[in-house]
């Protein structure tokens, strides 16, 4: 008992009064610092995902930062591009992907990375996602699946689980949710992974692996919107939701890649929360169809005569 009490005492002896240098966060250079703090609620998973993306481009990929353009649509997630100190664009609701397609076709050496919400990419923007995947355009799509329209105050999204309470499903959500990863794969994505925000390092690595992949890569991030989704479904705060992610995730292993992507439905029980979230790298086509910009170049040979 006494020993425990002792460990709970605040130990100020390690505090450095006159630090030997100016400290700054390792990713400060990659943040538009004047835009920080973000507009996000305390504990929101979007901030963590931004950090995972910065970790990915710093530690796990050699793509020059000058060649990365971060593009987002509208939503809480949509604001992500504005916090990252790279080339960026905050497109209109649902249209981040066509904007990025335009960039990629005009400048094939650029790697567009889309960071946007489940509503933005799979509700209003679903058609564009399908076509970009079909064309295998060389871009990386990071979708933050928080099961809700966060920015607009918590209306049900196409990802909201059956039975879940939202502002617009006060008697429980009736229709079935999308399995975003399956949709991406079915439409032609050649790389697909899913992680929860709890799984920071695997997520960062998967983002980088997706970016290194030539072609349409897709990363689904299961994130906590405790404010607009968790709160109405008794899932608790950011901490409780992330603990639930930790418990519910079922990690696929390297040998499952390309095999079990169709067994990746997320399970959610009303009153309990997420009971199963399959995560991991679901698909990585090594013998990929050639990405779009390359195909354009290969399509016709111009005879100069």
């Amino acid at each position: 008992m006494t020993a425990k009490k002792k460990t709970n005492e605040i130990d100020t002896s390690t505090m450095v009064k006159n630090p030997p240098k100016k400290f700054h966060h390792p990713y400060d250079e990659l943040l538009r610092k004047y835009a920080i703090p973000t507009i996000y609620c305390p504990g929101c998973g979007i901030g963590t995902t931004i950090q995972a993306f910065l970790e990915a481009i710093t530690k796990y990929t050699d793509i020059p930062h000058e060649n990365i353009v971060v593009i987002s649509g509208i939503g809480c997630t949509g604001r992500a591009s504005g916090y990252i100190n790279l080339d960026g664009f905050h497109a209109i609701h649902g249209r981040a992907i066509p904007f990025a397609s335009g960039v990629e076709i005009a400048r094939p050496d650029i790697k567009p990375v889309i960071i946007s919400g489940d509503g933005d990419l799979f509700s209003i923007g679903m058609g564009h996602l399908a076509h970009a995947a079909r064309r295998n355009i060389d871009m990386t799509v990071i979708v933050i699946n928080n099961s809700i329209y966060g920015l607009t105050g918590g209306q049900d999204a196409p990802t909201t689980p059956v039975g879940a309470l939202t502002k617009t499903t006060p008697y429980g959500k009736i229709s079935y949710p999308f399995n975003l990863s399956q949709i991406a794969i079915a439409n032609g994505a050649t790389f697909c992974a899913r992680y929860t925000v709890y799984e920071f390092t695997p997520l960062a690595k998967a983002i980088a692996r997706g970016m290194n992949h030539q072609g349409f890569s897709f990363i689904e991030v299961i994130s906590n919107c405790h404010v607009n989704f968790g709160r109405r479904n008794n899932l608790g705060d950011a901490i409780a939701m992330r603990k639930q992610f930790k418990k519910a995730r079922v990690r696929m292993t390297e040998k499952d890649i390309n095999k079990d992507w169709h067994k990746t439905d997320i399970e959610f029980k009303v009153g309990v929360g997420f009971t199963k979230i399959p995560t991991g790298i679901f698909l990585e086509e090594k013998e990929r169809p050639i990405e779009f910009s390359e195909r354009i170049v290969n399509a016709y040979e111009i005879k100069k005569s």
């Binding site: 400290f23 990713y27 400060d28 996000y40 901030g47 931004i50």
Partner: peptide, 12 residues
């Protein structure tokens, strides 16, 4: 550091 959504805690 990795859980923090706001870049407010880090190791040097």
């Amino acid at each position: 550091e990795r859980s923090c959504p706001d870049f407010a805690i880090f190791i040097d």
